[in-house]
C-alpha cells in the first residue's frame, strides 16, 4: 500500500448544541417516542407466528424457500432417485446417507434401498438439489421442523416420500431433465444448458 492510497478523514466539527449533547438526546427520544406510539408500524412489520404464517400470507417464495427435504416420485409413483450418490458427495454437512440396491425396474440400474437425511446436521444449503441429475431430491417450503428426540429427526426414505405427498400441491415437482436412461418422469425434453464460459 502506498501513501497516496491512504485517505485521511477529518473528524467533523460539532456544533455547540452537539457538544452539549442534550439536544441530540432529546432528538433521539423524539424518534424513540414516535416508534413507541406507532401501532400501525408494528402491526405491519410483525407477524404473530403460529396463527399468522408467511405461507398463510402468501409471502413465501415457494419455489425458492429451502426447508425440509423431500424425495420426489415419478408419475408411476416410484421413487425418482437413482442412487447416484451425487447429493451425498455434494453435501457439505455430510448429512445424507444412501444405500444403493439393484433396481427392480428396467429404466435404471440402481435405486436407493436406504435414504436417510439427518435434519439436525443439515445446513439447508440446497447443494443436494443442485447436484441431483434427476431432480429427485428437493427442498420444500416447509419450515416447521420439530421433534422430541434426535432419532426422530433423521428422516428415512418413507418419511421423505411422505413429505413429497404433503407438499406436492404447494410446490409441484420441477420438470425433470433427460438422463441416459431416458425420462424418469414428466414430459419435457429440455436438456440442461451447458455452462456459459466464465469470463476470467
Amino acid at each position: 500500500m502506498r501513501d497516496e492510497d491512504v485517505i485521511v478523514l477529518e473528524e467533523p466539527q460539532l456544533s455547540a448544541a452537539e457538544r452539549l449533547y442534550l439536544p441530540q438526546i432529546l432528538d433521539g427520544v423524539k424518534t424513540t417516542l414516535r416508534h413507541t406510539f406507532s401501532v400501525k408500524n408494528r402491526k405491519q412489520v410483525v407477524r404473530q407466528y403460529p396463527e399468522d404464517t408467511r405461507q398463510g400470507r402468501g409471502e413465501l417464495r415457494l419455489a425458492n424457500y429451502r426447508g425440509v427435504h423431500r424425495l420426489n416420485k415419478d408419475p408411476d409413483g416410484r421413487v425418482a432417485c437413482v442412487a447416484c450418490f451425487m447429493c451425498s458427495t455434494a453435501c457439505p454437512a455430510h448429512c445424507i446417507h444412501i444405500e444403493a440396491g439393484e433396481s427392480p425396474w428396467p429404466d435404471r440400474e440402481k435405486y436407493p434401498v436406504k435414504f436417510d437425511i439427518d435434519e439436525l446436521r443439515c445446513i439447508y444449503c440446497g447443494m443436494c438439489e443442485e447436484a441431483c441429475p434427476v431432480d429427485a431430491i428437493e427442498l420444500t417450503p416447509n419450515y416447521e421442523l420439530v421433534g422430541l428426540t434426535r432419532a426422530e429427526m433423521i428422516f428415512d426414505k418413507e418419511k421423505l416420500l411422505q413429505v413429497y405427498e404433503e407438499t406436492k400441491d404447494v410446490k409441484p415437482r420441477k420438470n425433470p431433465p433427460v438422463t441416459d436412461y431416458g425420462l424418469t418422469g414428466g414430459q419435457s425434453k429440455d436438456v440442461a444448458q451447458p455452462n456459459v464460459e466464465r469470463k476470467v
Binding site: 424513540t32 416508534h35 413507541t36 406510539f37 406507532s38 408500524n41 408494528r42 412489520v45 410483525v46 404473530q48
Partner: peptide, 10 residues
C-alpha cells in the same frame, strides 16, 4: 414491552 415498542415489535 417498551423495548419492543421502540423497535416496532409487540
Amino acid at each position: 414491552k417498551l423495548a419492543s415498542f421502540t423497535q416496532d415489535r409487540h
